[in-house]
Write a protein that binds this DNA or RNA. Structure first.
Lengths: 132, 132
DNA sequence: TTGTCATACCTGACAGCGTTAGGTATAGTG
DNA sequence: CACTATACCTAACGCTGTCAGGTATGACAA
């Protein structure tokens, strides 16, 4: 059974920042866990590569939207945890505004064309793994 | 009164193809008219540049999603009209699927975070200028 | 010991695409 | 004649995902 949907790179690029910021609003997290969280939130339909995520995290840090710290998990592994800043929360709100503006426009024309607005996948309500 | 919202380039890139294809499903159109239609559909919140749109149209043509023809309008101006192909309609459906998958995921986490899903802007119901 | 998998991080070359800025041409209007 | 709107096109630049590669460790099985 095929689960993963191929999402084109522009859509990945457009959603990566709001998605990562949203995950960090849930609580502090780290790269590898974020990759799994995205898979989980999308019901297995989205599969991010780490080669795409780490540069995103570094960029967010450079922009002051997140702060990073190293920690050693009980498992003994080192992890780089990220925490969203107040500036990051503002950015998150702005990203949401933009996304909703574009989404409303797309849905508007789809509706005009008589295309039924599928409710689509119902997002999982699983609670996030809370930060350390 | 400020109307135009700055939309970041990645979101523009992600929405340009589904938007253009949707507009062409409404009926044949040409570059300059598409720019105005986007402004109209978004309630003035989106403002595309022609330097971004023309390459999109050329790409869609190269991919076989649209076909182009030159026409002379009653105004005496030459226009390059585009018509969506059957392959373009398939691509349109695929773009919609991908958009809705990502949108559902984002809305899912927003909901979990307790962020109210604003209905946002209600798209205009103005009928499109029908193609020649 | 050795092999394999999952965990966990990082980087570089490449290609695609919007931004910005420039160009050309014509119809309508003052 | 100047100016605006219409209508098309292209090039240099920078950003960002893809793809492929790298390093390291813990758990488990052969």
């Amino acid at each position: 059974m095929r689960e993963v949907m191929e999402i084109n790179k522009d859509l990945i690029a457009a959603s990566s920042t709001p998605m990562v910021l949203a995950i960090l609003v849930e609580g502090d997290s780290y790269g590898y866990a974020i990759l799994k969280r995205v898979r989980e939130l999308s019901g297995g339909r989205m599969e991010w590569t780490d080669g795409m995520l780490y540069p995103v995290l570094h960029r967010l840090e450079r922009l002051g939207h997140v702060e990073a710290r190293w920690e050693i998990a009980e498992s003994g592994r080192r992890r780089k945890y990220y925490r969203i800043t107040s500036g990051g929360r503002e950015q998150f709100a702005e990203e949401r505004r933009q996304w909703q503006a574009v989404d409303a426009t797309l849905r508007g024309i789809w509706t005009e064309l008589g295309i039924p607005l599928s409710a689509g996948y119902q997002a999982s309500a699983t609670s996030p793994p809370h930060g350390a």
